[in-house]
């Protein structure tokens, strides 16, 4: 599995909570969220585009920083 780093414009715990719930719904991913740094690490076999789409669902800006 590849670990991807995304930058998500999260401003509060509600935002990171929303991201958490969205990712939990996917089911087959492992992830870590660093709220102060606005970073999300996702370990998954899914391709970057679909992960990106998923993260965008929360209505926040998402940037892909590359594999870690």
């Amino acid at each position: 599995m590849t670990k991807h780093e995304f930058e998500v414009a999260m401003t509060c715990e509600g935002c990171s909570g929303a991201v958490t719930r969205i990712l939990n719904k996917l089911g087959d991913v492992k992830f870590e969220i660093d709220l102060p740094k606005k970073l999300v690490w996702i370990e998954s076999d899914r391709d970057v585009d679909s992960l990106m789409e998923t993260l965008k669902k929360c209505g926040k800006e998402v940037k892909y920083n590359g594999p870690k």
Binding site: T11, C12, E13, G14, C15, G17, A18, R21, C58, G59, K60
Partner: peptide, 15 residues
């Protein structure tokens, strides 16, 4: 449930 700040409110309103 789950909104904690103005930015949550905004993103819901916008989307």
């Amino acid at each position: 449930e789950g909104m904690t700040c103005g930015s949550c409110v905004q993103s819901i309103e916008q989307r």
